[in-house]
Nucleic acid binder design. Structure first.
Lengths: 170, 170
DNA sequence: TCTTTATAGTTCTAAAAACGAACTGTCAAT
DNA sequence: ATTGACAGTTCGTTTTTAGAACTATAAAGA
């Protein structure tokens, strides 16, 4: 499967994975949420090769997740900042962090605490139903096709030749 | 950076990315949540190469996200099912789907709708604060080091020689 | 019985992606 | 005139992934 094909899939998850579904991109986005904005900042925080970093930033800009904004002339320099589309990735980031906090911490406990300014407390992110406000879990959710569904809700294999015609000749 | 190094990072996000942060793994997990359990099921739904599929499944089992359970003897066959650790990935999956629903749909609308059995309505997942129940956004959250923090909360570049000695001598 | 099919992999080669290091270019400061 | 900060680009090597074929076990079919 070519990865740009992902964005054509009739599956919001596949499309999203096509945008942010690789390791460096996710780490770059983590840095964005930690207020990193410049090329050197990303590079030295992550240790990513400059080549890949340039490519990933370009892609995120192309996708509308980051905006490239000049912060000085002569020489032209730009910063990369999250668009609203990028800021909307926050729940994904928090969900990832929270899973790590729950299942991947060592004996010393979680590396980072999150304080909610509104209520002043350290919190965990909880995913709830927009309609009734109850916390969600996989088993309480039933999926069915929406208006954008194609015949197949999932990614389809490339037409599997079906391995027939084994005895047809020879 | 070697990818197994990610799991050593003092960052829950990096550690999680070390487990699920690649495209095929995320797609495999999507299939798991859609009730796929067997090798051939994953392979034909995704079009992933058998080689990679075998490797990814092995890794997810090693990480405790999937359990490999025999469903017949002679020949020995196994199913891959989500552990609790795996089921706990649900908020990540939903957050990814929701972002795609919001930002990546074409004109026809979202491919899949989600119904909350408890309240019977189609819903969107919303991430809220565990303490006050208010929806979260990036700007309302302040992070600070937790007990598992090392000096550096972020991934550190490999020791950058730092190019100092700017005025000290020479 | 001999062949095909279903299932779950493994093995092999070629192609693609990532790594790592060096290089380019602009400007400010020394 | 040289060095350093910054933001990349280029290039040769290594690692990963793709794609196809092959192995193995057992049931079903001709």
């Amino acid at each position: 499967m070519r990865w740009d094909a992902l964005e054509e899939e009739p599956c919001s998850m596949a499309r999203t994975i096509g945008v942010i579904g690789d390791r460096w991109t996710l780490l770059i986005l983590r840095e964005c949420f930690l207020r990193t904005r410049r090329f050197e900042g990303f590079q030295s925080a992550l240790g990513i090769t400059r080549h890949l970093l340039a490519e990933r930033l370009k892609k995120l800009v192309r996708q509308g997740v980051l905006r490239r904004i000049p912060y000085q002339e002569a020489p032209k320099r730009h910063e990369y900042i999250l668009t609203q589309k990028g800021l909307d990735l926050y729940p994904i980031m928090m969900a990832i962090v929270h899973w790590g906090d729950t299942h991947m911490v060592d004996t010393r406990g979680r590396p980072l605490l999150h304080e909610h300014r509104k209520c002043g407390k350290n919190f965990d992110p909880v995913m709830v139903c927009s309609e009734c406000g109850e916390p969600l879990s996989a088993k309480e959710v039933h999926t069915h096709p929406g208006p954008g569904a194609r015949s197949t809700p999932a990614i389809q294999a490339p037409e599997k030749p079906k391995a027939r015609a084994r005895r047809s000749a020879a």
